[in-house]
Write a protein that binds this DNA or RNA. Structure first.
Lengths: 207, 207
DNA sequence: ACTGTGTTCGAACGAACGTTCGAATTATCC
DNA sequence: GGATAATTCGAACGTTCGTTCGAACACAGT
C-alpha cells in the first residue's frame, strides 16, 4: 500500500529500482507498438511481471506513459543546462543544444520516440505537466536563437527556425539506422552546419 | 457484393463517391484520436453510417487507413511531378518541392498528419505499397539535391540533408496553427531560405 | 406489380481491453 | 521464529474492440 514520494535523489529504494526496470521495458513496448497499441498484457510479458503486479507500481497505463515522458524530458533539459553553463558564444551554444539533443536521442532511441510520437496521448493533468517541460525546452532554444540574432544582426523568423530545428532533430526517430548512419557527434555537426548556415547566411538582407 | 476496380478515372460511381466521403470523415477521426485509438464505432458516428454499413465499402479498418494514406501520398507525388515539369534550375526545383509539400500540408492537415503520424500502423502488403510511394518521393528529392550539388560544386551529405528537410516539413503537423502562423507560400519561402542557404553556404569547403 | 441488384442496418459474435480484489508469497526486523 | 509490512499473483470484473450475418430497404428495368 505504501507509495514513495522520493525526496532523496540518490539512494533509490527497492521500489524505485523495480519501477525503473518496468519503465525501461514499457518504453520498448510503447516504442514498438505505440501507446494505444500496447496492452497491459504486453507490458506484463515484457517486464516479466504479472498483469496485476504492475498495478502495485503505478495506478494506470496513462500514468506509466507520463512517468516515461517526464523522466526522459527532464533528463534532457537537465543535461542541457549543465552543458550550457559557462558558454557564452551563441553559435557554440546552439551547437551544444543540437549535440545534447542528438546524443540523448541516439543513446535512448526508444525513450525519444515515445516522447516524440506519443506527445498527444496524455490527457489533462498529465499532458499539462509534460507540456510545461516542453515549453521550457522550447523557450531555451528561442533564447539561444534570439541571442544569435542580436549578436550578429540577423533577421530570420525565430519561431519558424526553432520549430524547423526541432523537426530536423525529432524526425530522426523515423529514419535513423545505427548500422548505416553516423554517430551523434557527426550527425550533430552536419545538422548544425545546415541549420546555422541557413539562419546565418544572407545576414541582414531579407525581403 | 460488387466491388469496383475503378479503371475509369473521371466519372466516379456512386460507390466511389460515398467511399470518398467516408474516407474524409475517417481521416478526421484518425487525425484526432490516432489509428489505434479510433474505433470503428467512432468512424461510424463521424460518417453517419451504421457500423455494419461501413464494411460494405472496405473490408477492414487497416485497409481504410491504407486507402487514406495511398490516396494522400499519390496526390502529393502527382502534383509535384506536374509542377516540376519544364523547370530546370535545381534551386528553383527544390523551392517548388517544398512549396508543393507545404501547400498540400496546410490545405489537408488531417490527411498529412495521418500520413506522417501513422506511418508505422500498416502491416505487410499494405505497408509495402505505401512504402513504395514514399521511396519514390524520397528519391525525387535526392535527385534534386544531387543535381544542385553537381551544378554548384557543393559537398553536403545528401541523405542527412533530405531527411532533415523532411523533418522540417513534416514536423509542422505538431505545431502549425492557422490562426497565428503564416500561409503556405510564406512558410515555404522561409523554410526554403533556411534549408537552401544551409546546404549552399560554405560551398566546396567542408571538413 | 415483380425481379434483381446495390445499399444499409440491428444484433450479435468471440476476443481482447484496463482495472480490481483478496489471497498467497516474500522480505524485514525484533 | 513469529509478527508486520512489502510485494506478487490468479482469477475475475464489466466494457469495448473489430468483424460478421441475415434481413430489410431503395431503386432500377421490365
Amino acid at each position: 500500500m505504501a507509495r514513495r514520494h522520493r525526496a532523496a535523489p540518490a539512494p533509490a529504494t527497492r521500489f524505485d529500482r523495480r519501477l525503473a526496470e518496468i519503465l525501461t521495458h514499457a518504453t520498448e513496448v510503447f516504442c514498438k507498438k505505440g501507446y494505444e497499441g500496447a496492452s497491459m498484457r504486453d507490458l506484463s510479458r515484457a517486464s516479466g511481471m504479472s498483469l496485476a503486479g504492475l498495478y502495485y507500481y503505478f495506478e494506470s497505463k496513462e500514468r506509466l506513459l507520463f512517468l516515461i515522458q517526464k523522466h526522459t524530458f527532464s533528463t534532457i533539459v537537465e543535461r542541457l543546462k549543465a552543458r550550457l553553463e559557462g558558454v557564452s558564444d551563441p553559435e557554440h551554444k546552439i551547437r551544444i543544444f543540437i549535440l545534447n539533443h542528438l546524443e540523448y536521442f541516439l543513446a535512448n532511441p526508444a525513450n525519444m520516440k515515445v516522447l516524440s510520437h506519443e506527445a498527444e496521448a496524455l490527457k489533462n493533468g498529465f499532458a499539462s505537466e509534460v507540456a510545461a517541460i516542453k515549453r521550457e525546452y522550447y523557450r531555451i532554444c528561442v533564447g539561444l536563437l534570439d541571442q544569435l540574432k542580436s549578436d550578429r544582426g540577423l533577421h530570420f523568423p525565430t519561431r519558424i527556425a526553432v520549430l524547423s530545428l526541432f523537426g530536423m532533430m525529432n524526425w530522426i526517430y523515423t529514419w535513423h539506422n545505427p548500422r548505416v548512419d553516423a554517430d551523434a557527434e557527426q550527425l550533430a555537426r552536419e545538422m548544425s552546419d545546415i541549420f546555422l548556415r541557413g539562419v546565418m547566411a544572407g545576414g541582414r538582407a531579407r525581403r
